[in-house]
Nucleic acid binder design. Structure first.
Lengths: 197, 197
DNA sequence: AAAAAAATTGAACAGTGTTCATTTTTATTA
DNA sequence: TAATAAAAATGAACACTGTTCAATTTTTTT
């Protein structure tokens, strides 16, 4: 066990714990027991648990980007947007616990460093979608197109928080995939109309 | 100080604390100090802190419904949907800390009682919107109309979580009100198109 | 006024994040 | 290689969290 790999070992072990037991299970002591490193070592490596979660979250965003980027050259712009959405849903459903943590981290976090570290990853993903948007809505000027894109992306992103829990199950019988796809396609149809005006 | 009002006093005092200091500040001991009742009394009254938060949250949903219900008879169906949305945003921005708690409660909550208690309030609000939807999209059959309505309402609801924090500020310069209104109107435009197909 | 019932209390328990003097390990020097 | 210096790892201890429940206080009934 190479000593330089402490960070890596802790991150990997922590990721396992989150995936298997849920985000609530990730505490300094449980991570300590599971990894074999002392609580103090965790703090030497990460400063505090918020930073540890931060690392987990941008790893998650990196993984999501990698999945979406594979679809970069698939189909028409319209098909691609649907593929992106489906892949996004699949990713979230396959990684419920990790994605839950992405959404619910800001609870413990006081400072604002949060956004800065996430930003690059979120922007990367946005750029994938923008490329499809450009092809699909050539007549919408860039500033407005960016705006519409951000609204759609933020909507799907915030909606995805509810894909990780069964909170909505008693409210609507709608399938989670259909929910996102209906939002996407209705929104795109609306954009097509508003483009013509 | 009437003894029968312990619950009420605690709920009111707790609500003040949440509004002023934020949801994170609401702990059994802080509520105890602020209210003058002992920690044990809080537990006698509410069983646990989750139930206390539960009460706070359905009060918040009741308040929201009351605000929206006032607009029941205003303008055209289309105007009314925009009014509802604006009022919703106003309410959320005026009650950021309370609304934050509505969204982030499920963290501590293991059982599912949550959904049941909230459900009636959320359905009430949905019915307001459905009434406007019925007038606006007479040609969409009821089952599909309900579906579209739920998708829109869930989207705005989940989006509203980000109105209570500045998480999005570094991602998009878009005004929070514009964000919601653009989502609403693009979505409605899309529905109008899809209605004709 | 005495006895019974009910309500209130807060110290104590197990858990959380976090710190930091002490110990152990590693690297450097003689 | 042995002694010394530097670095890294440790876990008991602190302040906080939700929660419990025997002991106390208050209220009601007799």
């Amino acid at each position: 066990m190479n000593k330089d790999n402490i960070q890596e070992n802790l991150v990997n072990k922590g990721r396992e714990l989150i995936k298997e037991k849920g985000a609530e299970f990730l505490t300094a002591r449980k991570l300590s027991e599971a990894s074999g490193y002392s609580v103090g070592t965790i703090y030497n490596q990460f400063g505090n648990m918020d930073n540890f979660v931060l690392i987990q979250n941008y790893l998650t965003l990196d993984n999501l980007y990698a999945r979406l980027a594979k679809l970069r050259a698939s189909g028409t712009a319209y098909q691609r947007l649907n593929l992106y959405t489906q892949e996004f849903i699949d990713f979230v459903l396959e990684n419920k616990n990790l994605w839950f943590l992405v959404h619910n981290f800001h609870l413990h976090n006081n400072n604002r460093r949060f956004s800065k570290i996430y930003l690059r990853r979120v922007v990367q993903i946005t750029q994938l979608v923008e490329s499809a948007f450009k092809a699909l809505f050539p007549d919408i000027p860039l500033p407005e197109r960016i705006l519409s894109l951000q609204v759609l992306w933020i909507s799907l992103f915030s909606l995805s928080a509810f894909l990780t829990t069964d909170t909505l199950d008693s409210f609507s019988k709608i399938n989670k995939r259909s929910l996102c796809e209906l939002l996407l396609n209705t929104y795109l149809a609306g954009m097509k109309v508003l483009e013509k005006l």
